[in-house]
């Protein structure tokens, strides 16, 4: 059993997430509809309804340790079915965004690494370069030949381009991404 000490600070996480996402996690009354509909709950150590409870109790470290936010597939089933109308995915996205600022253990670092690689390719070419993304993430996972059996038939059918395509709009995109980065860095410093 985990001992939880309730104090004035317990609600800090709830308030911070509400400021970030506009969602009020305190509305959750543990009906478990989110968990029952969740396609990847079977793989989560902390189920979606437990995640909501953990937020209410301010158990931030446990939340990040469980890695639940990185096993979520973003399929929006929980949002759709929540009787309290909580946008649970938006809350999870808030926690994902926050993970860049807090320094807790993450059992699945490969997922945020995937997002970083994805966005760096987008910033470079303006569009996603599928082969490059697959190769880079395979290297990151130390399994360079993963899914070769899937890639080959796609390759010979011309469904996977060997070289990236650069969008004409990439300059404007880079400018916008640079501005966002500056904005978010200045927010962190304050």
């Amino acid at each position: 059993m985990m001992n939880i000490v309730l104090s004035r600070d317990t609600l800090n996480l709830v308030h911070q997430l509400q400021r970030m996402t506009g969602e009020n996690v305190m509305l959750c009354y543990q009906c478990k509809k989110c968990t029952l509909g969740c396609p990847s709950a079977y793989r989560m150590r902390m189920k979606p309804h437990e995640l909501m409870r953990a937020i209410q109790l301010g158990q931030e470290e446990e939340i990040y340790w469980s890695g639940t936010i990185w096993i979520c597939l973003s399929c929006e089933t929980c949002n759709t079915r929540c009787p309290q109308g909580i946008n649970i995915l938006r809350v999870i996205d808030g926690l994902r965004e926050r993970s860049k600022e807090v320094n807790y253990y993450n059992p699945y670092p490969v997922i945020p690494a995937f997002h970083r690689i994805f966005l760096s390719l987008v910033e470079r070419f303006g569009r996603i370069y599928e082969l490059g993304l697959a190769v880079l993430i395979n290297l990151r996972m130390l399994s360079p030949f993963k899914d070769m059996d899937m890639a080959y038939p796609m390759f010979i059918r011309g469904k996977m381009k060997p070289l990236p395509h650069r969008s004409q709009g990439v300059k404007e995109l880079q400018q916008v991404m640079e501005r966002i980065r500056k904005l978010e860095e200045s927010k962190l410093e304050n």
Binding site: D93, G94, R96, E97, L119
Partner: peptide
Amino acid sequence: SAHATSHL
């Protein structure tokens, strides 16, 4: 990837 990184 974008919504898991930054809402903005």
